[in-house]
């Protein structure tokens, strides 16, 4: 482990530190946000009774979070944030729409 993982090696030590910090933050924080939004979206979107949809969505969200952390360390640095933020925003928009529709009128 003295040889740094090549994808994590980003030139000088400071840059590498920054890279690791950025990935960690993206995986933990961004991953949690993605998982939370995905859970909300699925809870509304899954064609099941409400309690079941909520339960299934929440169960899946843990897999999504773990997957996001792994993903944040697997891809090239420049993809990490866009790759996590894009689906989060997309699912967030979808949740907003669905929630609006289910409430009667889009709020």
């Amino acid at each position: 482990m003295t040889t740094l993982p090549s994808r994590l090696r980003f030139g000088p030590d400071g840059r590498r530190c920054l890279d690791v910090a950025s990935r960690s933050l993206a995986g933990i924080g961004g991953g949690y946000a993605l998982a939370a939004v995905a859970a909300m979206f699925l809870a509304l979107a899954l064609p099941m009774p409400r309690a079941e949809a909520v339960y299934t969505a929440t169960m899946l969200s843990f897999v999504i979070h773990a997957g996001a952390v792994v993903w944040a360390f697997a891809v090239r640095s420049r993809w990490v944030w866009p790759g996590l933020l894009a689906p989060t925003l997309l699912l967030g928009g979808g949740t907003w729409l669905l929630h609006g529709l289910q409430q009667g009128a889009p709020s």
């Binding site: 998982a35 939370a36 939004v37 859970a39 909300m40 699925l42 809870a43 509304l44 409400r50 309690a51 079941e52 949809a53 909520v54 339960y55 969505a57 929440t58 169960m59 969200s61 843990f62 949740t95 929630h99």
Partner: peptide, 24 residues
Amino acid sequence: MTMLMPWAVDLAYDGDRQAYFAES
């Protein structure tokens, strides 16, 4: 799960977790 990831419950049940527990 409800503590770590309360978002789906709180959205679908408007924050009424007791209703969720009863229904599930």
